[in-house]
């Protein structure tokens, strides 16, 4: 989606509690956290479980499988995107929701069907930041 002539997409600043996530994406791994007390899988990263406050947590690699939960299609101009483009919420098979973009797919309501299966792909933004994006399963893989 970030094409020639467009500014690179926004590159976030990791913090100590999120650094492992961004290190993971840099290595094309989508890392999640799980509470070893209650089993809750959560995102965004924190050093404790947001369900019960427990710091007994572990980091693990997600399957990268997800489904499309909802989205908007922005028709206004954005310096880093070719409009119109969809801003999506996907649900990972492990449970957590995350915002992302859907690539290798027409950015139309007809092509972006809710609950369609997706898989993670990665886009390098800078030396430090690589962002997880999603594409329809079976497309362009």
């Amino acid at each position: 989606m970030s094409k020639e002539g467009l500014r690179p997409r926004y590159a976030p600043t990791p913090t100590p509690d999120t650094a492992h996530f961004w290190e993971g994406t840099r290595n094309h791994k989508l890392l999640l956290q799980r509470c070893t007390d209650c089993g809750t899988v959560y995102f965004p990263p924190r050093a404790f479980c947001p369900e019960n406050g427990s710091s007994n947590i572990e980091v693990f690699e997600a399957s990268g499988k997800a489904k499309l939960i909802s989205y908007t299609i922005n028709h206004r101009q954005h310096p880093s995107f070719e409009s119109p483009y969809a801003i999506a919420i996907v649900q990972l098979d492990e449970g957590p929701m995350m915002m992302s973009n859907i690539v290798d797919c027409e950015q139309t309501p007809e092509a972006l069907v809710l609950d369609m299966p997706l898989e993670v792909t990665f886009e390098k933004v800078s030396d430090e930041i690589t962002v997880p994006l999603f594409r329809p399963v079976g497309e362009g893989s």
């Binding site: 999120t18 954005h78 801003i87 973009n101 962002v131």
Partner: peptide, 21 residues
């Protein structure tokens, strides 16, 4: 960290993101 990279442009692009669901 977890929304800005994906191109939101304020409330018009985000507030209604659950409407299709």
């Amino acid at each position: 960290q977890f929304e800005m990279p994906y191109g939101p442009m304020g409330p018009t692009t985000l507030f209604g993101i659950g409407v299709l669901r």
